[in-house]
Amino acid sequence: MLGIGCGSLLALALVFVAIFAVWFGGLSSSMQVDDEQERQDLEDSLADTTSDSDAFYTLILGRDARPGDDASRSDVIMLARIDPKAGTVSLISIPRDTMVTINGETQKINAAYAFSGAGGAVRCISQFAGVDITHYVSIDFEGLVEVVDMLGGVWVDVPESFSTGTYTFEAGEQLLTGDEALAFARDRYHVSGGDFGRAQAQRILVEAIVRQVLASSPIELPGLISKLASCITTDLSAVQLVELAQQFVGKDLTMYSAICPSYTLYQDGVSYVGTMFDEWRRMMQLTDAGLDPNSETAEIPEAQQADTELGAASNSPAPRDYQGLAENAMTTDDVAAAS
């Protein structure tokens, strides 16, 4: 039997390290924003990653362009508060038609990306939520089909029974294939609450994928990371994504899901979504404190009460006297109750 010296073993180990470094480097490059100017603007718009707090905010945008859709506008907008130390993730949907002011004009919030790219979206949503955003992720929902199939499907608790296209979903927990998951997450015509219902489905799907990726074996992770890299754009490197996932391994993950309290609104013949400002402020105070954003009984800590920017939506021109308008409109309360 031939022996292998310590020097040879060290050399072999260094070769493998170099191979993985190149592989991770290639993945990281593939996930970057392509346009150099937009990438620099995004970096300038993101908050400093060094903070006294372990928790941080990430903006998640999703584009699911289909024939007739405006591919330059973000179809999915979520604000995620991630706290690896506590093992907690909060996903907050912001309706894409939310009324805001951009460049001095009334616009829908999903236009921020169309006007100024990823950096513009970060600045707009940071002001709307009243928090610093540290990281950015853009998801191609079509690409998630293969990720879901690689996971062997995802378990989803469907809030209500409905049919869309060739797919029929029954209320309750079920295993969805990639194509089924995409159909579930994109329908807004056959579910309660319309676009608000679709936003709920998108959060349910993202949560299901996160849970199953974190439950994957170390052998499966490289392939999953490679596939995820093909359908996301982010400021994070592949190494950072792996390190972030590792911080949640072995912890009892808590995921909260909510949507900015809103109602449908027409102004000058244009359909918008108006913000329920008092409810939004409370939701962001609870979220920032790491509490359930939907709680009606939790007490808000003094630090969040004193932060006047949290949930202030200072860039929204929607009516501040909104109670009467909301009573006669579709609201975020009209979605099917999730179990």
Rank of each mutant, 00 (worst) to 15 (best):
A312Y: 09
A112Q: 01
W23S: 03
L46K: 08
A55P: 00
P319K: 09
A201N: 15
V335A: 06
L91P: 03
A86L: 04
A199L: 06
V335T: 11
G223I: 03
D54F: 04
S53R: 12
L14E: 09
K251C: 05
S217M: 02
D195I: 00
D187P: 00
E296W: 14
C124W: 12
R211F: 08
L42V: 02
D321L: 03
G269F: 07
A313I: 01
K108F: 07
E302K: 15
D35H: 13
P218T: 01
I102F: 11
K227C: 09
L228I: 14
S74F: 00
D132C: 05
V249R: 15
A21W: 14
A118Q: 14
V239H: 14
R188W: 06
F24Q: 13
P67W: 08
D44S: 04
V335F: 07
D252R: 15
L14S: 13
G165D: 05
M99V: 01
D70M: 12
P159S: 06
D35V: 10
V17S: 07
E146H: 13
W280C: 11
S339W: 14
A303H: 13
Q246V: 10
D54A: 07
G68E: 12
T166H: 15
D235S: 10
T49K: 11
Q240Y: 05
S230V: 00
V145F: 11
Q174V: 04
G3Q: 15
D307I: 00
T331N: 01
V191S: 03
A171V: 06
S295L: 01
L325N: 03
L27I: 06
P84W: 14
V158F: 08
V147A: 08
A289T: 04
D70W: 12
E220L: 10
Q212C: 05
V270C: 09
N110P: 07
F162E: 04
E299A: 13
E142F: 15
V137A: 09
Q305C: 08
E220C: 05
L59M: 04
A129G: 10
Q37P: 03
D149R: 01
V33F: 08
I19P: 13
I232N: 10
L286C: 02
F184M: 11
S271L: 04
G178K: 00
G290M: 00
S257Q: 14
I232R: 07
D235E: 11
L175F: 08
T134F: 07
S262N: 05
P222T: 01
P319E: 05
D83P: 09
D69S: 14
V156D: 02
D307K: 04
S216A: 12
T164Y: 15
I102T: 04
S257W: 11
M150F: 14
G152A: 02
D334L: 07
L214F: 08
N315A: 13
L10G: 09
W155A: 11
D307G: 02
A171M: 10
D44P: 03
T101P: 10
A336I: 08
S51L: 05
Q107I: 03
A181R: 01
D64T: 03
